[in-house]
């Protein structure tokens, strides 16, 4: 599903050149739940952004669903993204001006899902996330756990093949964090591929593989035989 070959990302300012990713080779099969771990600044989020087609690599190859996409234009990446990838962020990133319902509905506006279908899917997911009673609330009126549940609903509303989660529990207490992880594991059980960046060893155990990064390079890959549900 995902394959990178000598993936490289270099940030340049006028005087300094920083290598965020250095020849990263990564292979992810459909249905996997991969946790990416490593210390701050090791390139985890950069890797996730490139895998999520939010950013382009500076070098190397990136095959997404067997297509080489490293040189794709913003428009091409956007097309791939909206139909195949769902995002979950540490800081939830809900749009403040939109209600819970509207935030969940938003991705379907960009994939031109008909209004009736949008309503049906949004309500189903809000029920599933136990957020239906809050559908007219705005993000700033919700707790962190509730906001992340809405963000998860938004990430999966277009039935993506893959979910990219960047420290999804980072801003949550353990109970809410647990709920989110269980939801992700559930989605993975249902066939969605998940790639998650995390600092938490506990969270990484919800996945079936842990990739460790250091200074922009993969230093280890471990398969977890019996992962947590």
């Amino acid at each position: 599903m995902i394959r990178t070959n000598k993936l490289k990302k270099v940030y340049r300012t006028e005087e300094i050149e920083t290598t965020a990713l250095n020849e990263v080779d990564l292979h992810i099969q459909p249905g996997e739940f991969v946790s990416i771990m490593g210390p701050s600044g090791c390139g985890k989020s950069t890797l996730l952004n490139i895998l999520g087609l939010i950013d382009n690599p500076s070098g190397g190859e990136y095959f997404f669903l067997d297509e080489e996409v490293s040189k794709y234009s913003e428009r091409q990446r956007s097309n791939l993204r909206k139909h195949n990838i769902g995002f979950i962020f540490q800081s939830f990133n809900l749009i403040d001006e939109l209600s819970v319902y509207e935030n969940v509905e938003l991705p379907m506006l960009y994939t031109k899902v008909p209004a009736g279908e949008r309503k049906k899917r949004t309500e189903e997911l809000l029920e599933k996330m136990n957020m239906m009673h809050r559908k007219n609330h705005f993000p700033q009126q919700l707790s962190g756990g509730q906001q992340q549940r809405v963000a998860v609903a938004r990430a999966i509303v277009n039935n993506p093949k893959i979910i990219l989660a960047d420290e999804p529990t980072g801003n949550l207490d353990s109970s809410n964090g647990d709920d989110v992880m269980k939801t992700l594991a559930q989605l993975n059980q249902e066939g969605t591929t998940i790639i998650m960046v995390t600092h938490s060893a506990y969270c990484s155990e919800f996945g079936n593989r842990v990739v460790r990064l250091l200074d922009g390079q993969i230093v280890s890959e471990n398969t977890i035989a019996k992962y947590r549900i």
Partner: peptide, 16 residues
């Protein structure tokens, strides 16, 4: 920034 970032991430293209 946040609005544009989110919208683009979840699939909005420039034209939209």
């Amino acid at each position: 920034i946040k609005e544009i970032g989110i919208k683009k991430t979840i699939g909005a293209n420039r034209k939209q």
